[in-house]
């Protein structure tokens, strides 16, 4: 356990290095950005700014300054938003976790069910239908699926709001607030959830088909166990282990998907923040986002490993 956590340290250090490199590759340094924001400045002004922010120091000193700032919770300042990057990200973190968490739950529930159904009817029309739909959803770009659902359920059939986080008026109680957020949540969650449900369907089907041919399943059949019990206890349980690994590996990709989906639905999360930061070339904010999302994925992977050790007693954490 301790060793597993220690293993995260070099990755997090590389993440810090990557964010720092990013800031340095970006056109213009902090001094130029500052001077630009205050309406330009001459070379002495720039030199003054550089020495004040330590930008005239050797690169490794600059990196140590940066690391010290990040570790003390200072991710820099976003001049475009006139806010600290930490505050910006903090305000957007919860909506993204709400969106990706719900989407993940939807994806796992639908994906495992559909995958199990397809595997149980392998080669028959049920399998072809489920696999076909999964392939079609998988091949659809997330933003296109989002736009399609938005037109269908927000415009043609005006059942759901087409974007945003919560209705701007008519909110009187906490319950109404929650209800409004839930309504706004449906379409983005369905969009993101459907994409990953398709991936999990394909994966669950493959993993279960591999287990169906194993001896212990044949034994269970020979004992005369009910088909549903064999599927749930003997096949699904074993297939869920590799699935958990895939879910952990997909954590970063779920955040990638959130960038497009949040932009389409104007969901005020990290993904939309990333889109805005790229549009405004706000590299301080982008570096902060790289650090935040990267750390998030590292932590999710840690949780997955812990879960794995709980579910499979043969696995011990190194």
């Amino acid at each position: 356990m301790g060793a597993r956590i220690a293993q995260m340290v070099p990755t997090l250090f590389l993440l810090l290095l990557a964010a720092f490199t990013l800031l340095h590759l970006a056109p213009g340094d902090a001094a130029q950005v500052l001077a630009g924001e205050s309406g330009g400045g001459d070379t002495t002004y720039l030199a003054n700014l550089r020495s004040r922010f330590g930008l005239d120091q050797p690169i490794y000193v600059q990196f140590m300054l940066y690391a010290r700032n990040v570790l003390s919770g200072d991710l820099g300042f976003s001049f475009r938003n006139n806010m600290n990057v930490v505050d910006l990200i903090g305000a957007r973190l919860l909506p993204t976790l709400l969106l990706t968490g719900s989407a993940m739950a939807v994806a796992v529930a639908f994906g495992m069910t559909a995958g199990a159904l397809a595997a149980a009817h392998a080669g028959k029309w049920q399998d072809r239908l489920i696999s076909g739909i999964a392939l079609l959803i998988y091949a659809t770009p997330g933003f296109l699926l989002g736009i399609g659902l938005m037109i269908l359920f927000g415009v043609t059939l005006p059942w759901l709001p087409i974007g945003g986080f919560v209705a701007s008026q008519g909110i009187d109680s906490g319950f109404e607030y929650a209800l409004s957020v839930a309504k706004h949540l449906v379409l983005p969650v369905v969009t993101l959830g459907a994409l990953y449900a398709a991936i999990y369907t394909r994966f669950t089907r493959g993993a279960m088909l591999e287990i169906y041919v194993q001896d212990h399943v044949r034994t269970a059949r020979a004992k005369g166990l009910a088909a549903s019990r064999i599927i749930l206890r003997h096949v699904m349980r074993n297939a869920s282990l590799p699935l958990i690994t895939v879910i952990g590996l997909q954590a970063g990709s779920l955040l990638s998907g959130a960038i497009l989906v949040e932009t389409v639905f104007a969901w005020p999360g990290l993904g939309r923040l990333a889109f805005e930061a790229v549009q405004q070339r706000d590299y301080n904010l982008l570096a902060g986002l790289v650090l935040t999302t990267g750390t998030l994925v590292v932590l999710i992977n840690l949780c997955v490993d812990l879960l794995y050790a709980v579910l499979d007693p043969r696995v011990t954490l190194r």
Binding site: P10, T11, L22, G252, S256, G257, L260, T293, G294, V297
Partner: peptide, 22 residues
């Protein structure tokens, strides 16, 4: 492997839009 992990934990699409923007 730590390097590979780095490229795995940064969301690919975020990484790609940053690289293209630079």
């Amino acid at each position: 492997m730590r390097l590979t992990e780095l490229f795995q934990v940064i969301p690919h699409f975020l990484f790609a839009i940053i690289l293209v923007s630079i």
